[in-house]
Computed example of a mutant assay.
Amino acid sequence: MTLIQGKIRIIGGQWRSRLLTFPEHPDLRPTSDRIRETVFNWLEQDLSGLRCLDLFAGSGALGFEAASRGAAQVVMVDNDARVYKALKENKEKLQAMQVELLLMNALSFMKSDARKFDVIFLDPPYRLDLLPGLMPLLPPHLEQNGLVYSESRGIWNLDEQWKIHRGAKAGTVRYQLLELAHYG
């Protein structure tokens, strides 16, 4: 069996124009250049010193983009061994020492890891409808004034603890930066 690989380009920062490769997988749909450009504009381009979590890393587009733009630490979590292998190869190719890769289930990570992050990228496989169950797990992992990027197909209802900081739509993809309505 031949492994078909996809490619996506980093669009900004120190690794601008570098290509990332990733395996063909039915749940893997990298965030488009246009959406990434918008999201990183919302995040003010420079993520110097920030800690980021890419919870469903997939192609690595969001996590490596954050690292390229100066994030001090990027934790990338994925539970697929082939995807993890590709992430590891991309990390080595870029010499991305600030990137930590974890081969594990996203829910298990959220329940077992106590770290806090400034930005959490949340782009799970659409077919699994994981966002409603994941959102309540995020607040203990979010730094004061931290943001959550979420991407979904269509509309889903946020509970009252979240408010939309910025949001947009591209085709059927709805993407937004969320913040906690109240920090406790």
Rank of each mutant, 00 (worst) to 15 (best):
D113Q: 14
N105P: 06
D118H: 10
P139S: 04
P132I: 06
A106H: 02
L87T: 09
F121L: 02
V119H: 09
R82W: 06
P136K: 10
L147V: 06
Q144N: 13
K111H: 07
V99R: 09
H141P: 01
D113K: 14
K88H: 11
D80A: 10
K88R: 15
V83K: 02
L103C: 15
E100N: 09
F121P: 01
N145P: 07
K111D: 04
K91E: 15
G133V: 01
S108T: 09
Y126R: 05
N90I: 13
E143V: 09
M135A: 07
L138C: 08
N79E: 11
L147T: 00
D78I: 10
D129C: 00
M135E: 04
L122K: 00
F121T: 05
L101Y: 03
L103M: 13
Q144L: 11
L128Y: 03
K93D: 11
N145Q: 12
L128S: 00
G146N: 15
L131K: 03
L142C: 03
P139R: 01
L103W: 13
L107E: 13
N145A: 14
P125Y: 06
P132C: 06
Y126D: 05
G146C: 13
L94R: 07
R82M: 07
D123E: 04
M97W: 13
L142F: 02
V99G: 09
A86D: 06
K88A: 12
N79Q: 14
I120Q: 00
L122V: 03
P132Q: 08
M135N: 03
K93F: 15
M97H: 14
M135D: 01
P124N: 06
Q95F: 12
L142I: 04
Y84L: 00
V83A: 02
K88C: 11
S108P: 03
L128K: 09
N145V: 03
L138P: 08
L94A: 07
D78F: 12
M104G: 12
D123M: 02
M110Q: 07
E100T: 10
M110L: 11
A86M: 05
D78T: 15
E143F: 05
N90Q: 11
K93C: 08
L147Y: 02
L138T: 05
M97Y: 13
V99I: 09
D78N: 09
N90F: 12
R82K: 15
M135G: 02
K91S: 15
D113N: 12
K91Q: 11
D123H: 00
L107N: 08
P124M: 06
D129M: 05
P140S: 08
P132F: 04
N90L: 14
F109H: 10
L137F: 03
P125V: 08
V99F: 10
G133A: 14
V99W: 12
L101E: 12
A81L: 11
L103N: 14
R127Q: 14
E89C: 10
K91V: 11
Y126V: 01
L138F: 08
M110I: 07
L130W: 05
L122Y: 00
N105I: 05
L138K: 07
L102C: 07
A106M: 01
E100K: 15
P140W: 08
R82I: 05
S112I: 11
I120P: 00
K93G: 08
A86W: 11
L137D: 06
L94V: 09
L87Y: 12
L102A: 10
L142T: 03
Y126M: 01
P125R: 02
L134Q: 01
V83M: 04
D123C: 06
